[in-house]
Design a protein around this nucleic acid. Structure first.
Lengths: 335, 335
DNA sequence: CTCAGAAATTTCCGCGCGTAAAATTTTTGT
DNA sequence: ACAAAAATTTTACGCGCGGAAATTTCTGAG
């Protein structure tokens, strides 16, 4: 940088300031630096930069399961917004393993990130370690809430997802039974079950929850196996099924196909199946899946905005607030 | 580190050496350090460490499209193996955008990685920039080959994929026509088309390639739209379709469903559909997809092994060698 | 028990930059 | 044209560690 400052005719500290924020130097100075930059393609040493900086420009993005395209999509959004804001995002996946989640946060800490966007595993997360991390690093939790942790939570309003699907299904046909995993990894699943029970009651209908066995993040397989059992034993109390999430529904549809159960609306069909999340593949299932879509845009937007506010506020908010976005019903052929 | 060295009763440089390689110090010394580590939970500053180290322990993993669970899976594999070997992997996705790919490599360079595992976009990649990168950083290319770039290439043998599926299909029913994108983003697609033509010729059969329009990485949608057109115009020359890849096939199956074309084997079915890749969702399509599976394990294993050899060899190999792994045929209900 | 050679440790310097304070220059407003 | 304000430069120090050379300690054969 010394040499580069020399050839560009500017003092080194000013060049340093330029790299910290190009707008913090005079326009004429900036022009001279950028001109010299063209000719010498100098780039500051990242490690030396971050060694003494109070705040790095690093942002950690941690999702529970990257092989789920839903998280891949949301991660892409978050990543791009961070880059646009001049930060260096780094993406991590816990791969559904609580220990790995802790390890990621542990490693993240030594990167001294300005902030972290964390979608925790949920029920399985090691709460204490996460809490400890949140105290040390400015963290915004998204997608899956853990009570009281992080400076803020941004996610989707599970009640809205359930209410819209239940309302639509029950006014267009039989009221739905609810298909879910018995031990959901994600707290959203519990909220959805409760919302289902509430909504059915509010509508004066009799709820019926079908909890199938299975743990972990292989939702499709769990949905398929559970679906096969349920269909074989004829445990459905309604010709309409609302799945707790799309990946479960994809597995359930697969089971229906195998059992020769025709899924769709109206004459010639045995079953209506709807779900929640609007998974990227939901429109390509057979039949295409009626579902409730997340407001990706809003969630990721608000998440990064909140994180930047948090960073500017010095890493602490007065109160931890939670933002929930409603769902948008997507009608397709399955229900 | 100075302080930590003091409380553990060891000199700082020795502690430094310990962190560089715990086995490089005497056992008694190591024990004392690790004991002190328990009590003070000190961790070396990553930035100061990497500032003067010849080689960092960073490894970059770059995939073309992370929202494709196939790449998410392979990335997970690679990531884990790097961690096991004591490296710090960082995952990046080009999101199907050539400029982004270049930007990632650009940013990666300032991280001074020990090596990089790169699955390039392929046809769309900015070749010159990638070549420049490969010259500066020890790089192993995987999944999608770019002639002559990187120190080695590890991927799947497209001919094996095609031969196995074509052989199976043509001996169990009508010979397949080949369904593909007109302008495939990935060079594997071209190799597969050529392999199809060759194999059909070798078997004395008449090949028929159906190229549908569409660019980018939204393969499912391209497959669906293309499928709808093909079915509407009745352009299939055979009752058996071999899709160039599973994501395309998922879209094609969706089109079949919409057009009321029954996919499966034997009586009561109109069409057999097979494909290649064994996408994580291929077993959950309706019907489940007959496909040729990558040897994930072997590809990721060999890729990281090669990278480590490359790093130990100082970043250069005498000759660039290519390793291809054969496919494994997965029979399901679709063909 | 002794001594050479190897291994471990210490001493010392510098990496490339951030940052603070003071001095100087440039810009802005009147 | 002049003073005040803003931007820039100078000066100086330190961050936390890596690495080479010098020194000490340890190991094993004689």
């Amino acid at each position: 940088m010394e040499e580069f400052a020399a050839v560009s005719g500017i003092s080194r500290p000013t060049v340093s300031k330029y790299f910290h924020d190009p707008d913090s130097v005079r326009a004429s100075t900036r022009a001279r630096i950028e001109e010299a930059l063209e000719r010498y393609d100098y780039r500051p040493n990242v490690y030396a930069m971050n060694q003494n900086r109070r705040l790095t420009k690093n942002v950690g993005i941690v999702v529970p399961y990257l092989a789920d395209p839903f998280f891949a999509e949301i991660a892409r959004n978050l990543e791009q917004r961070c880059i646009d804001a001049g930060y260096r995002p780094t993406l991590y996946s816990s791969h559904g393993i609580p220990d790995q989640e802790v390890e990621i946060l542990d490693g993240l800490r030594s990167l001294k990130p300005a902030g972290v966007l964390l979608a925790p595993l949920g029920r399985a997360s090691h709460k204490k370690e996460i809490e400890r991390f949140c105290k040390a690093v400015p963290t915004v939790i998204f997608d899956s809430n853990i009570e009281g942790m992080g400076a803020a939570f941004i996610g989707s309003d599970n009640a809205s997802f359930v209410d819209q699907t239940v309302d639509y299904l029950s006014r267009s046909g039989d009221a739905p039974c609810f298909f879910e995993m018995r031990h959901p990894a994600n707290p959203n699943a519990n909220k959805r079950r409760i919302a289902y029970l509430n909504r059915m009651e509010a509508l004066g209908l009799t709820p019926h929850v079908i909890s199938v066995p299975g743990e972990g993040w292989a939702f499709e397989e769990i949905g398929r196996q559970g679906g096969l059992q349920v269909l074989k034993r004829d445990q459905l109390t309604s010709d309409t099924v609302l799945c707790s999430n799309d990946r479960l529904a994809i597995g359930f549809l697969s089971a229906c196909y195998e059992r020769n159960v025709r899924v769709g609306i109206g004459e010639g069909f045995d079953l209506r199946v709807a779900s929640m999340d609007d998974h990227p593949f939901a429109r390509f299932t057979c039949p295409p899946l009626t579902t409730a879509a997340h407001d990706y845009e809003a969630v990721s937007n608000r998440s990064v905005e909140t994180l930047f506010e948090l960073i500017e506020a010095g890493g602490k908010f007065g109160t931890r607030n939670e933002t929930l976005y409603p769902a948008r019903l997507i009608l397709r052929a399955s229900a």
